[in-house]
């Protein structure tokens, strides 16, 4: 069970897909125009991620190594199709605002990355928790970007007016450039927090063999 909690912590903080691994940038930049869109995208991805991690982990001994990528894609695409139909049926407003980015979850690199680097090598339960952790980390990332962009760009949070009426929305924040500003700003803040923590001796360390390509991961300095 410890391992499962560790996976949750790993996905949410240590290897947060948005701010640390910088994975899944396409939906991150494109759909976070409002907090609710970010939350919806994050949760949708989480569902797909958990299900695909579970199934791929179950099938990990059956799938031949040489054709694992097509096999993973088939699994992920099936879940994405299901989620897409469910969204269209039950939350059509979210379905409309996410639009093209729902089918694109199939090629989201977080999902394939976790399948390749974790689920295909580990038992089912840790894989599920890995999916939950990563998915929630992605959700937190997208939602926080969405909140900041919505507050600055529209004066609202989750569709409710929170800024005083005299505040004039800075429209650029709900356009494409704003996504880059906010993503960079939030990443800078979390790097700063992590550096402070590291200085105080609470070293946020990553186990060697953490399963991620070291090129994307700056935690242990192993890639340098």
């Amino acid at each position: 069970m410890n391992k499962c909690l560790e996976r949750l912590f790993n996905g949410l903080i240590k290897e947060n897909p948005t701010f640390v691994l910088m994975l899944g940038m396409c939906p991150t930049l494109a759909v976070t125009t409002s907090a609710i869109n970010g939350l919806g995208m994050g949760l949708t991805t989480t569902v797909v991620l958990v299900m695909s991690n579970m199934l791929i982990s179950m099938l990990r001994k059956i799938i031949p190594d040489s054709v694992r990528m097509p096999a993973f894609i088939v699994v992920v695409a099936s879940f994405v199709t299901m989620v897409q139909f469910l969204l269209e049926g039950f939350i059509p407003s979210l379905y409309d605002s996410l639009g093209l980015y729902i089918p694109l979850i199939v090629v989201n690199c977080i999902i394939l990355g976790r399948a390749e680097s974790y689920a295909s090598k580990n038992p089912v339960l840790p894989s599920i928790f890995d999916g939950i952790g990563m998915g929630l980390g992605f959700t937190v990332g997208l939602t926080s970007i969405g909140i900041v962009r919505e507050i600055l760009g529209a004066g609202q949070a989750f569709g409710k007016q929170i800024m005083p009426a005299s505040f004039e929305p800075i429209t650029i924040f709900i356009l494409a450039p704003g996504a880059f500003f906010v993503l960079a700003g939030l990443t800078a803040i979390q790097n700063k927090v992590k550096l402070e923590a590291a200085k105080k001796g609470k070293k946020v360390e990553t186990k060697a063999g953490c399963g991620e390509g070291c090129g994307n991961c700056t935690n242990c300095g192993g890639g340098k």
Binding site: E168, P169, I170, T171, I172, F173, L175, P177
Partner: peptide, 8 residues
Amino acid sequence: CFLLISFT
């Protein structure tokens, strides 16, 4: 340009 896009 930042202002132009934001407050056209």
